[in-house]
Amino acid sequence: MSDFFTIALFASALHLAVPIILPMLGGLLCERSGVINIGLEGMMLGGAFGAVAFSYVTGNPWLGLLGAVGTGLLSGVILATMSVLLRGDQVIGATAINLVGAGLTAALVPIIWGIDGTTPSVPKVPTPELPFVGQIPLVGPLLAELSAIDLVAFALVGAVWWVLMRTDMGLRLRACGESAAAADAAGIDVTRVRFIAVTLSGVLAALGGAYLSIVTLDLFQASMTQGRGFLALAAMVFGKWRVGPAFLVCLGFGLADAIALRAQIFTHDLPHDLLFALPYVLALVALATFVGRATGPADVGKPFRRA
């Protein structure tokens, strides 16, 4: 058993958690501002594709990351326009993002590269090792497996928490999600706050996708996110729309993924397909038992319109 639970396992758990954490943060910001976002999956695919396409065209992976930010802005602005500005149904609008995201990215691959399915390799973002952290006792060896990019992702968790819970801006954002009418009466421009939150969620989700496509791998594959956007959504609900708990849930999902992958190599008699379903089963069981009534922000899902 001891050679199963190694440093490598926990390191890969952290690596697998990052592309869930980033869209989770985006979804959390979005829902705390009062807009349901089940379009994270489509936004991630857009980001993963944008990153690879830009990296391929420019030959510079960092510009690829910038391209992911661009596609994230685009998908975020489209969703925000549909569900905030034009007050369309939020679930339906986000579903459209998912469908178009999956279809368009898969359809653009043959247009750009001339082959179906998987793109050829493109320059990937270098993952520089961190100096000196290996010497830190206890957690040193684990941290040494991480790259600067992982740390930036983890730092973003803290940043989002701080902005959401400790700044004026965050209070305004949460007010829009709890009671848009009251926030409006207090002089907050609900439409603007929600628009910005949805756009930001697009960027964060796209970065999560880009992490998969040009940090972990160096190519794009049709529907390569494999439901991580939905997993992020599950983590957010599981964590009751709070940054800390949702982050821990993401880490748990990462660990479950890592165990399932490792079990595939180690043993053949374990039903590893069932292990892949484990995060979802866990989330459902938790919702049914000890999480308690998981109710989101009070005004989530309701389009706001000034009287």
Binding site: A96, L99, V100, G103, L104, A106, A107
Partner: peptide, 11 residues
């Protein structure tokens, strides 16, 4: 590409 069907349904 066949994936265009998905785009149409999304739109």
């Amino acid at each position: 590409s066949r994936e265009m069907v998905g785009v149409v349904s999304g739109l």
